[in-house]
């Protein structure tokens, strides 16, 4: 499984988002690759899920990859809930 964390430049908020996602994956004992990407290259990278903020989510939706929109990129509860909902579908 590959999860892509996306932000404008690929090393600020996406890196923070990646850290939160990895924390929850570890907690749940799930193995997955989490990578960061900037918005312009995100759509050309293969992934099962994209996690990003509301602005980019709107623009990245509609493709084959399931896009998850995040309000607080460091909030473990929000990310846990989002991961649970996409992994069950």
């Amino acid at each position: 499984m590959k999860i892509l964390a996306v932000c404008g430049m690929g090393f600020g908020s996406s890196m923070m988002l990646k850290m939160t996602i990895e924390k929850i994956l570890k907690e749940k004992g799930i193995t997955a690759d989490v990578e960061t990407a900037d918005f312009t290259t995100a759509s050309s990278i293969y992934a099962d899920f994209i996690f990003t903020n509301e602005e980019f989510a709107k623009q990245l939706e509609g493709g084959k990859v399931k896009v998850v929109s995040v309000k607080n990129i460091a909030d473990a509860n929000e990310i846990r809930g989002a991961l649970e909902s996409v992994l069950n579908t």
């Binding site: 932000c7 404008g8 430049m9 600020g12 908020s13 918005f39 903020n53 607080n72």
Partner: peptide, 22 residues
Amino acid sequence: NNIQELGPYILIAPGVAMPHAR
């Protein structure tokens, strides 16, 4: 310029933004 180009994606939590450049 980054915000003008890419939008207010730098909001990292409700009410908190993290402006930066490269």
